[in-house]
Amino acid sequence: MSRLKRLQNIDGLIISLQTIAKSQCSLSEDDVNLLNDAIAKLNRLRTKKGLTDKHYQMEISDIVELITKFLI
């Protein structure tokens, strides 16, 4: 996947998670922390250059795990 496409996907996910965090006043502190951790990891991932697909997938799997914990 091209770097531009990755950045677009990351930006879209960041915006979505920020929208959820801001629009849901009934979220617990743990839920907000999970969302903020996922957003922080996405922002760090956005700045990393030269990632192979394998490294990218490992980073994304950590983020997906945080989002899954939020949803469950």
Rank of each mutant, 00 (worst) to 15 (best):
70 F>M: 10
63 I>C: 12
64 V>P: 06
2 S>Y: 12
23 S>V: 13
45 L>A: 03
66 L>S: 00
58 M>T: 11
19 T>W: 10
51 L>M: 15
72 I>N: 02
18 Q>D: 12
15 I>G: 06
64 V>I: 12
3 R>W: 07
22 K>I: 00
69 K>Q: 07
64 V>R: 13
62 D>L: 15
54 K>P: 03
30 D>H: 11
49 K>Y: 00
65 E>W: 07
47 T>S: 05
40 A>N: 10
58 M>G: 11
45 L>I: 09
33 N>Y: 00
58 M>S: 15
11 D>C: 04
51 L>N: 08
50 G>Q: 01
17 L>C: 09
7 L>D: 08
60 I>N: 10
47 T>C: 02
12 G>I: 10
20 I>P: 04
16 S>M: 14
18 Q>A: 10
41 K>Y: 15
12 G>C: 11
31 D>T: 01
50 G>I: 03
65 E>C: 05
1 M>W: 07
48 K>E: 15
55 H>I: 10
29 E>K: 13
2 S>W: 09
34 L>R: 07
56 Y>Q: 06
42 L>R: 10
4 L>E: 12
57 Q>T: 09
68 T>W: 03
55 H>G: 08
28 S>N: 00
53 D>I: 10
38 A>S: 15
49 K>F: 00
49 K>S: 04
40 A>I: 09
65 E>F: 09
58 M>I: 14
17 L>H: 08
41 K>F: 12
65 E>L: 06
55 H>L: 12
22 K>M: 03
8 Q>T: 06
13 L>R: 04
51 L>H: 09
34 L>N: 03
62 D>Q: 15
53 D>M: 08
4 L>R: 03
38 A>M: 13
15 I>D: 12
35 L>H: 05
9 N>D: 15
14 I>H: 11
39 I>W: 05
35 L>F: 10
36 N>K: 07
8 Q>F: 03
54 K>W: 15
